[in-house]
Every structure is written in C-alpha cells, then in structure tokens.
C-alpha cells in the first residue's frame, strides 16, 4: 500500500500535484480546530479590511476574519463531500454487486432504474426537493438526497467488473463449496472492486462539492452554516465585487478551484493506475 503511494508520488506528476493541492486544503480546513474565532459571530473585526499581515485574507463586510472563517467553510464543505461519497458508495456497491452477480430479471430491473437516474437532470430535481422541504433540508438530509441521486454511474462500473468475476473459477469454487451469495458478493467480489470504489469516491466528492457550492450560492441550502458556497453567497449578497471587496470572492474561488483540481487529478491518476493498459503505456511498454 505505502510503496504504491510512494511510487505514484515519485513517477506520476498528476498524482503528486493532486496530493499537494488536496493536502493543502485539508490542512487548511483542519486549522479550524485551533481557530481563535467563532464562525457564527459577526462584527468582531473591522469590516472590509484588505489582506494584510494581521488579516491574511482580509476581513469581509460582515466583520469576520476571512482566513479563519474560510477554514470552517472548507471543513464543512469537505465534510459534506465525504458524507455524500460515503453514502453513495454504499448504494453503488450494493446495486453493482447484486446486479452483476445475481443477473437476470433483478439485473434488468436495477438497470432500468439506473437508466432513469442517469437520464434525470439532477438540478431541477434538487430544486424541487428544496422547494418542498425548505429549511428542513439540512446538511445531512441534503447529503443523503445527493447520495440517492449520485450512485448510478459508479454502480454501472462496479456491475461491469462483477460481470467478469462471475464466470471466474474462484466464484464457481465458492458457489459449489456452499458459500452464500451474500458472502460471495461481499467477501469474494468486493475486494476486486475496491480500487474502483476509491477512485470513483474522489470523483463523487468532486461532484457533490460542486453541487453544494452551486446550491448554496443560489441560497438554496442553510445559508447560516459556513461553507464555500455560502461564503460566495454572502459575498454576492453584499455586492462584494461592486463595492471592491474583491478578496471576499477571489480567495474562496481560488482555493475551491484548487480543491476541485486536486480531487480530479487524484481520481484520474488512480483510475489510470487501476487500468493496466494505461499503466503499461506510462512505463513505455
């Protein structure tokens, strides 16, 4: 495990850059645990101060120190992404393994449902949920909802791997020695799909954070919880660009773009590592 990561860091530039970007953001968000300020309190500092030695990222129009405020924003945003990725992994692994192993009518029904989810334009559906649930759509509910919408691509991928595993010798051995289907799926087949699960988890987090930022910026989430999206929401609300408080917009946008690129590079390089063909090509084979 560790020597794989070491080799990837040494030979795969994309992986190295991804780890660097993501690591930076994670460390930054962990700073929130030693933060001297409470993110919910406003007007503790002079508003609209530009970045300086005292206030590294300046202060916003709500009188908050942006440096510490953003540590909380990134912690909550990252936490949300991890939550969605974890929940949706559960669904996609279950559907993928069952669909691939059991096959037949079960597979067909699951894949029709899958098709419906792939086709649905997600944003209108999410807006409908916001419209209906209103303020009771808190972070946990939103994460659960997004997990219910974000599993189909990965379930399909896992299914395609399991389809191949089903006809392998060891599956037949396990079957004839009386292993229950559930055990075959989760003890024999699951280890084979784990690498894909990790790689798609990164991509799923990226997607979840993107949707969260989008919804929050439109004011369709809990706007009093500090996240990257709500930071931009409040900046827009105070017309930060027009008033000239550019750091309130530019700094979170730059940091969140770094987070996106970091996650994406990790997902891509892991995918490439999993696929033996592309690994061979990288080695010049």
């Amino acid at each position: 495990m560790f020597h794989i990561i070491r080799d990837l860091l040494r030979f795969n530039r994309e992986f190295a850059i991804g780890v660097a970007f993501l690591g930076l953001i994670v460390v930054y968000s962990l700073l929130s645990f030693v933060s001297p300020i409470d993110p919910d309190i406003q007007f503790m500092e002079f508003p609209d101060l530009p970045p300086s030695g005292e206030y590294w990222f300046g202060t916003n129009s709500r009188g908050q120190d942006l440096f510490w405020q953003l540590t909380f924003a990134f912690r909550n945003t990252l936490g949300f992404g991890i939550m969605v990725a974890a929940f949706s992994r559960v669904i996609s692994i279950t559907v993928g393994l069952v669909s691939g192993y059991v096959g037949g009518a079960v597979d067909r029904v699951l894949m029709v449902i899958n098709d419906v989810f792939v086709t649905l334009p997600l944003l209108p559906v999410l807006l409908v949920f916001f419209f209906v649930l209103g303020d009771s759509l808190n972070t946990i509910n939103l994460a659960l909802l997004m997990a219910c919408l974000g599993w189909p691509f990965d379930a399909r991928l896992i299914r395609s791997i399991t389809l191949g595993l089903r006809h392998r010798e060891f599956t037949r051995h396990a079957m004839f020695s009386g292993m229950s289907p559930l055990k075959i799926m989760f003890e024999e087949h699951l280890p084979y799909v784990m690498p894909v699960v990790f790689a798609t988890a990164m991509a799923n987090m990226l997607w979840a954070i993107g949707v969260e930022v989008t919804l929050a910026v439109l004011g369709f989430t809990n706007i009093n919880l500090a996240t990257v999206g709500t930071t931009i929401y409040w900046a827009n609300n105070h017309s930060a660009m027009i008033v000239g408080v550019w750091w309130w917009i530019v700094i979170p946008v730059v940091l969140v773009v770094m987070l996106f690129i970091g996650l994406y590079l990790l997902a891509v390089s892991l995918n490439e590592y999993i696929d033996p063909r592309s690994r061979l090509r990288r080695m010049g084979g």
Binding site: E14, V211, V213, V217, M241, V256, V257, F260, I261, V268
Partner: peptide, 22 residues
Amino acid sequence: AIGVQPIPYYIVAFIMLILFGF
C-alpha cells in the same frame, strides 16, 4: 483542459462574469 474540466459550471460562469462584467 485538465485544469478547467473539474470546475463546476457555476464557478466558471461566475469567473467569466467577473472577468467580462467588471
């Protein structure tokens, strides 16, 4: 392409708005 592709639509549109609006 690798740099731009992972950024969500909203952020890209927003950056364009800032660049060409302000």
